[in-house]
Amino acid sequence: MKKLVTDTSWCKGCGICAAFCPREVLKIIEDKVFVEKEENCIRCGQCELRCPDYAIWLEEDKNE
């Protein structure tokens, strides 16, 4: 299964990823994205497509 990855150093806290995530996985805390409920993530990739700053994405899990 793919892994959800964030790079908060690139995140500008716009809130788009959290607002359009169909499963309410994400939250913005102090202007940065935070993965609150990873277990609910369906790996749809909406956050990656919409993030204007490439600060959240799905990647192949190398440990599998």
Binding site: S9, K12, C14, G15, D53, Y54
Partner: peptide, 11 residues
């Protein structure tokens, strides 16, 4: 990261 404002759709 690019210089565009937070949430700017150019990104």
């Amino acid at each position: 990261p690019h210089i565009w404002c937070p949430g700017c759709s150019h990104g």
